[in-house]
Design a protein around this nucleic acid. Sequence first.
RNA 1: GGCGCUAUCGUCUAGGGGACUAGGACGGGGCCCUCUCAAGGCCCAAACACGGGUUCGAAUCCCGUUAGCGCUACCA
Length: 485
Amino acid sequence: MTEPTRRPRLRFAPSPTGYLHVGGARTALFNWLYAKRYNGDLLLRIEDTDKARSTDESTRAIFDGMEWLGLLWDEEVVYQGANLERHQRDVQTMLDGGTAYRCFCTAEELDQRRKDAESRKESFKYDRRCDRLPEEEIETRVAAGEPFVIRFRIPEGSTEWNDLVHESITFPNKDLEDFVILRSNGTPIYNLAVVSDDIAMDITVVMRGDDHISNTPKQILLYRALGKELPVFAHLPMIHGMDGKKLSKRHGATAVGDYQHLGLLPGAMLNFLALLGWSPGGDREVMTLDEMVSLFSPDGLQRKAAIFDPKKLEWMNGQHLSLIPLADLEPIVTPALVAAGLTTEADIASRRDWYMSLLDLLRVRARTIDDIVRQAGPYFLDTIEYDPEATAKSWKDVEVTRDILVATAESLESSPEWTLEGLESSLRTLAETRGIAAGKIFQPLRVALTGLSVSPGIFEVLVMQGRELSLRRIRAAVETVGNSE
RNA sequence: GGCGCUAUCGUCUAGGGGACUAGGACGGGGCCCUCUCAAGGCCCAAACACGGGUUCGAAUCCCGUUAGCGCUACCA
């Protein structure tokens, strides 16, 4: 593709009528990537002209979601509702220029005609009956206070543009109808507001979901009627659920906030979303945001709708969990641990090296932050809970278990050094002298130390818990074995 | 219904006329590693929607068919 000829300006323009959806997040991401890649700006516009459905809470959720993802916008947020006067001015310009006209047909009449056409199995298109009403009639009806809307007059010909993702798209103008641009209450309709704002904001690249493709010819005609230069259009494919239908609440988590609370890393979310409809080419998959910026090109944009696969998202998160610098992971995990009541900021600050090693150990076998929190208990809490399944499996024979744990405790007590190597040699020696497989000692010991049947390597666990706590736990286990049934 | 968009493994995708016995990844299955679980390594199953062209040669270009999706408001 050809590089933009001037510093690009893009915008993400959600309407604040719900939460920030993963589809919206992906649109925001591609806009952001394009802006960063070509050294431009990404602006944020809140399309709040539908006052009945717009809420401050939703606007807040959009900001929060964008911030969590690290998709920061340039300049002040633009609120569409604040631009009413300009919208009206632009409509007036078209009225004066003769590219728009007043229409006195009421919504009810139109509904009726639409229904009639449908029952006759005909497609309905506004028949322009109010266009070129005699000048005097218009004046008298306006003077009489009769309500009217303003319609844009579709010219002859056809409208074509070269879409950044679809190449050439053409609409015969005869298939377009003279759409309303200003309601009878004087407020603008979507297409007008968008064009007016995009012009005012000097937007050069309009990148949005491909559900807007059919709005595009109308908007292009509006640009022309206003005598303004066209931006470049790019229509991104939709995201569908696993059933192939448009993604919605019944597909489970669809708000980006849901994923934040599920313990996902923003970098993983972004990486996953980027791959839904874009590929850098070749086999490249796991990338940081910076890498995506340098690799980004609209050429890699997909035309086909993509299905949201939570399994791959989870895998992606696991990859990022292991790849990001520990120092970056720490500030994300710590609040989760604190919130779970496992520790405090002060506790962590007092033994930071130990904590970082623990994180490093736990993140390998976690796919989400929540996984880490779930595994972390035994290293922070004073008392542990024994998982019934773990005890049933590894502490099956009470006498044998007690015997092994007692012997293990003795062996560890006399272990000269509390290190990975020292511990390993002690326990392997113990297994050898008793003539049993090492695993016969490790598993019961794992349950004694963590209460779980799954953990990092047993020597790592011993080292992380330290001599004092480890021995205390083993002794406690010896007491518990008989009573746990 | 009309208009538009789209079409490679179940899913995300690579592929820009010969490099295709169609590559990678997720998920699934198996093996290795191994103190458990992960991670990692190796292997297996799995796709060019269909029909016509164009061409010496089509996953790739063109046209149809089919299917899916989107739009079709005084919503955005």
